[in-house]
Design a protein around this nucleic acid. Structure first.
Length: 1095
RNA sequence: GCCCGAGUGGCGGAAUUGGUAUACGCGCACGACUUAAAAUCGUGUCUCGUAAGGGAUGUGGGUUCGACCCCCACCUCGGGCACCA
């Protein structure tokens, strides 16, 4: 027999050496009869100090990898070093060392520490990202991407860390500070190399659905990409005072005598127009609206209509149709055309018949004129400029009261020159320069919104022709959407805030009767308010035209009433009473909405009532249900009162908050959408809110677009310790990729890598000489290096074929292992590495470099190990747990096992390290060790109960392993041990226990295993299986409840019938004392579990 | 503000996913061994109550014969996004 006492110090080193010698963990591409299983953890940064977090990250997954191995899989669980990057460089600077030397030293130290874990890493497959044989392929991929336009060079606003003297990716900026060093990040404009990750934005979102990833990770990535679908709508710009019509009598021959008169006529015409567009107008309008060239010809506001039939303002083109109803225009066409021309318009004139008969010709003529303008930029009262706005709420278009441009918006410059006064222009200029001075952080943190109006220029709302003011304000971001918004203060908190401050009008969109093919009409109405947590019901009484609206507080409800009040108001009223009855709320209020002739229930759960209301639910069409459930006589009316319009209006004025509703006609049906409903699944009459938005957008000639929060990935770093960007510049400054035969494009050694704001490579003589030597005189190298996230975007391929000098990884090897079966890693990588590498693989796929479009089949995030005080471990808090010490004192097996025992793995939960807890696990291992001295040789000694316990343990442990619940797997082993210690245990049972334990405590179990005379490693044995016949229960404990409370319990044979059990239970003395004198209403029996007697 | 996730003993956490709440471990208390301590082993350990019983899974409701589990609302904590229109 071996050692008497469990001494990990001897065992662990011994077996690590032995396994090495036996090449126990050597992984081949294929093993007969075994399925491959590629398990990955993020490769480590060679900080030179392995902390508990590393153990948690690598040793616990090793338990799973070992389990899979025993299950008969050919498991690849590799390890390597993410060796480039800032921390290494910073540390090197601090210690005045060469980053390369430093990194390789630390890697050597870390390799030893990593080996102390006793993991199954196959070190022959190790990869190191700073090895030229690795970054050669990083560079090669960069060039491939460049070749296919996935890489470009552009001047962008970049995040600049003044301390680290480098550009940071958006992902590396946390709350305006550098993720690494904490310094406040500055914004700079700088030229850098960009990767077109935005091209993949949709796929990065959509492909998530098919992945077996936790929903939280998917949600975080979706958030990060930030796709929002909305509308792009054009607002034409008009200068005022507009229009500059000729003055005085008769200046437009045959038409008007004065501007006043013109105006009057216009008013009249406007009414007429809405009713009756000419046939020609309709045809032209419909045809041109659909044309794909991108011009929009639309009906203009009434004032335009006086002189033109259609105008394409962007091009200053006037299309006139001599229509039948244009009495005023029929004569003197020539003169009119001349006047228009003098005003700066191009005019095309058609006869009404011509339009109807030869539409194609007409359209072609217009398009031709649009493409080949015969006149320069116009002046006068039409402007050629258009503001494109982005909105997700096209349905609030009628509520627009002003337009806001971001200070950086390109139109600001040209509009500036059109403002009415010099003073205003100066204000604008000052505002813009002030904004520029503010950092991104300042802009985000400033409490008050600021802005300045562009006085004298107006934007025209395409829905109703209304002119609204244009403002410049920095609450609108240049980088999102179109950099311009339509402000709807009634339905947007930010716009509201701004409007309040600058006293801009606030217009609620209440009801819109919107007919897509006709000029939109709208009305604005005061509307009932809702309460916090309230249900609001609005009912119209058609008999006397009074309205009822009720608000309840804190009701929970699940669907309510709607339908034709007109047909049966009593039913609705009855239903209201029912709710009232149910909830008993006394503070019913009655408000009314004179314009919504339906009744609808809203559930409003907005926290603060003075914000604009949003509703969570809109309940429809449950009238049938209500009909069935109401007996009208049952309800007493409390405060249900019908009120007159005036009384209700008084009420409106005091109620806080409001809601809105938009009514849209859709093929004869009316569709309601409202705030809050849009963001939800609110539906009505088969058309949902998205359709509503689309319809409105189309009707005003806008288009549905997607925008993203995600930006392209800037990868240039002005640092030394990274993969050199394989680019050289010719004497004209044009960039060329370094051809493949010169890869790896080696990182030079002759640099002073101390940061100075200039890329360190710029000081390398060798690099410049090398460039000139290869490419010719005057050629210069790129001196920036790549973001290290590039290195880690493809590293998992390199493990598969780490010594290949012809390709990054041969197809044969890739096919053997990819995609990765299980990727366990840190939650901090969710929106960075995980997103980048998904993009990378998709790009590689598109360039036919790999076959998969996703590389990680299953992803599980892990949490952190906190210090014993429950805080994040940090030197400053003095709560850092040093694993080396604990391994020294208690052994690697104990540390592995304790980390597994703390809680479930693969969920983002942080666990504190408990110094006592780890001792408990050590105790368990010692008890396992000691059990060997109690073993009995003869097999007959294995009782039915011991076998049952063992097999049950195997079953449970196996199931727990499958769901990464290593904590409960360990507890099952403890339960088994607790039991076995009290029994006479055979060698067979003991061996099974050791096998179950071996993934957790590989060293100790190996020692005990061999000690039992086994020649072959325990780690080559198969995972124990259970015999389901051995775990069948013949006797069950049946719990007896009376009214759901446990009163007693029985043991029953599994053969006993349900009837017999019930009889036995009811006859029981203890139960009878509970049922005595009561009627037994029901007896519920749950097989093998319980009996519940209902009395 | 929006989107995820989570709230169970003194602590880490279990609970066959609607069927005996608190497994396993830590800690604590008592006991055994010891001159003593440590280690080890044993017993106990949600709470009120002498007991019979009652009450407890963040809070308040609901559904159910029965709820940590399902539904509604609220509160707290952790994470992602955020003047994102």
């Amino acid at each position: 027999m071996g050692m008497k006492k469990y001494d990990h110090t001897k065992i662990e080193k011994k077996w690590q050496k032995e396994w090495d010698k036996e090449k126990l963990y050597k992984v081949e591409d294929s093993v007969t009869g075994k399925e491959n299983f590629y398990q990955l953890v993020e490769f480590t940064y060679p900080s030179g100090n392995l902390h508990v977090g590393h153990w948690y990250a690598f040793a616990v997954p090793d338990i799973f990898a070992r389990y899979k191995r025993m299950q008969g899989f050919n498991v690849l669980y590799p390890m390597g070093f993410d060796a480039f990057g800032l921390p290494a460089e910073n540390a090197a600077i601090k210690e005045n060392a060469d980053p390369k030397v430093w990194t390789y030293e630390k890697m050597n130290a870390m390799r030893i520490q990593l080996k102390s874990m006793g993991a199954i890493f196959d070190w022959d497959r190790e990869i190191v990202s700073c090895d030229p044989q690795y970054y050669k392929w990083t560079q090669w991929m960069f060039n491939k991407f460049l070749e296919h336009d996935l890489v470009y060079r552009d001047i962008t606003k970049v995040n600049w860390c003044p301390k680290d003297q480098t550009i940071l990716a958006n992902e590396q900026v946390v709350d305006g500070h550098c993720e690494r060093c904490g310094a406040e990040v500055e914004q700079r404009n700088q030229e850098q190399w960009m990767l077109r990750i935005t091209k993949y934005a949709d796929r990065l979102i959509d492909d998530l659905d098919a992945l077996n990833w936790p929903e939280e990770i998917k949600a975080a990535q979706k958030n990060w990409i930030g796709r929002s679908e909305g509308s792009e709508i054009e607002f034409h710009i008009r200068q005022s005072p507009s229009p500059t019509l000729p003055k005085g009598k008769g200046e437009i021959p045959g038409y008007m005598t004065s501007n006043d008169e013109i105006y009057e006529t216009v008013q009249e015409r406007a009414v007429e127009m809405r009713k009756a567009p000419t046939k020609a107008e309709e045809i032209l309008w419909d045809s041109l609206r659909g044309n794909k060239i991108g011009y929009h010809i639309r009906r203009q506001h009434v004032i335009d209509r006086f002189v033109v039939d259609f105008a394409c303002l962007k091009e200053n083109l006037v299309i006139e149709i001599d229509g039948d109803i244009h009495d005023l225009q029929k004569e003197k066409d020539e003169e009119r055309t001349n006047i228009l021309k003098n005003l700066g318009f191009r005019v095309i004139r058609f006869k009404n018949d011509e339009v109807i008969k030869n539409l194609d010709g007409v359209i072609n003529k217009i398009l031709n004129e649009l493409k080949n303008p015969s006149l320069g930029e116009g002046q006068g009262w039409a402007s050629s400029e258009i503001i494109k706005v982005f909105t997700t709420r096209a349905d609030t278009l009628f509520g627009v009261t002003y337009i806001v441009l971001a200070p950086e918006h390109e139109l600001v410059e040209s509009l500036k020159s059109k403002v009415e006064s010099e003073e205003n222009r100066k204000q604008i200029e000052k505002y813009i320069s002030d904004t520029k001075k503010k950092s991104e952080l300042d802009r985000k943190q400033q409490k008050e919104k600021t802005g300045v109006e562009l006085k004298g220029v107006k934007a025209v709302n395409p829905a109703n022709g209304e002119e609204v003011p244009i403002w410049v304000a920095d609450y609108v971001l240049a980088g999102y959407g179109t950099g311009a918004i339509m402000a709807v203060p009634a339905h947007d908190e930010r716009d509201f805030e701004f409007a309040k401050k600058y006293n801009l009008p606030i217009k609620r969109v209440v009801e819109q009767k919107f007919i897509a093919t006709d000029s939109p009409m709208h009305s604005e109405l005061e509307i009932p308010a809702t309460y916090r947590n309230a249900i609001c019901a609005i009912i119209r009484n058609p008999k006397d035209d009074t309205y009822l609206c009720s608000v309840w507080k804190d009701i929970h409800c699940h669907g309510l009433i709607t339908g034709g009040v007109e047909e049966d108001e009593d039913i609705v009223e009855g239903a209201l009473r029912e709710i009232y009855e149910e909830t008993g709320y006394k503070n019913l209020k009655f408000i009314r909405n004179p314009d919504i002739a339906i009744h609808t229930f809203f559930y409003h759960r907005k926290k603060e009532v003075n914000r604009w209301a949003r509703f969570q639910y809109l309940f429809f069409d449950l009238i049938d249900e209500v009909q069935d459930s109401i007996d009208e006589n049952e309800f007493a009316i409390h405060d249900v009162v019908w009120k007159s319009k005036d009384e209700l209006n008084d009420f409106f004025s005091v109620v806080e908050g409001e809601f809105s509703l938009t009514l849209i006609e859709n093929n004869g049906d009316y569709v309601y959408t409202g705030e809050g409903i849009l963001g939800n699944s609110g539906r009505f009459n088969g058309m949902d809110s998205e359709e509503a938005r689309t319809k409105i957008t189309e009707a005003v000639g806008g288009k549905m677009v997607k925008t993203y929060r995600l930006r392209d990935w800037g990868i240039s770093r002005q640092r030394y310790w990274g993969t050199p960007i394989p680019i050289v510049y010719d004497p004209q400054g044009k960039a060329h990729p370094v051809p493949d035969e010169h890869l790896p494009w080696i990182l030079p050694d002759d640099v002073d890598h101390k940061p100075s704001g200039v890329a360190p490579l710029a000081k390398s003589k060798e690099l410049f000489m090398r460039t000139e030597k290869i490419f010719g005189e005057g050629w210069k190298p790129e001196v920036e290096t790549m973001d290290t996230f590039v290195d880690s975007s493809w590293y998992f391929y390199r493990y598969l074929d780490n010594k290949n000098s012809k390709t990054f990884a041969d197809k044969k090897h890739r096919d053997a292992w990819m995609p990765i079966d299980l990727y366990m890693g840190g939650a901090e990588h969710t929106t960075m590495h995980l997103l980048y590498s998904r993009f990378w693989v998709k790009a590689m796929h598109d360039l036919e470099m790999v076959k998969e479009i996703e590389s990680y089949k299953v992803r599980r995030n892990r949490g952190l190990i906190l210090g014993p005080d429950g805080n994040k471990m940090s030197k400053s808090k003095g709560n850092v747990v040093n694993p080396d010490e604990i391994v020294e004192r208690l052994g690697a097996d104990t540390v592995r096992m304790y980390l597994a025992f703390m809680g479930p793995y693969g969920v983002t939960v942080n666990y504190p390290w408990d110094p006592n807890g780890v001792v408990g696990v050590r105790r368990f291992l010692e008890r396992v060790w000691k059990l060997k001295d109690k073993l009995k040789e003869n097999k007959e000694g294995t009782s039915f109960f011991i076998e049952k316990s063992t097999h049950l343990a195997i079953k449970n442990i196996t199931e727990y392993m499958e769901s990464y619940k290593f904590n409960t797997a360990v507890s099952q082993m403890m339960i088994l041990l607790n039991y076995l210690e009290k029994q006479d245990v055979t060698i067979e049972i003991y061996k099974t226990l050791l096998q179950l334990l071996s993934p957790f405590a590989p060293h100790m179990t190996e020692e005990l295993w061999r000690d039992l005379g086994e020649k072959k490693s325990i780690h080559l044995t198969p995972w124990p299986t259970w015999d389901k016949d051995k775990i069948i229960d013949t006797v069950f404990k049946i719990v007896v409840q009376v009214n759901g409370k446990v009163r007693t319990q029985f043991e029953v044979e599994s053969s006993m019938s349900e009837e017999d059990i019930k009889i036995k239970v009811l006859a029981d003395q203890a139960i009878r004392s509970w049922t005595e004198g009561k009627e037994i209403k029901r007896v519920i029996y749950v097989k093998d579990r319980l009996v519940n007697i209902v009395v």
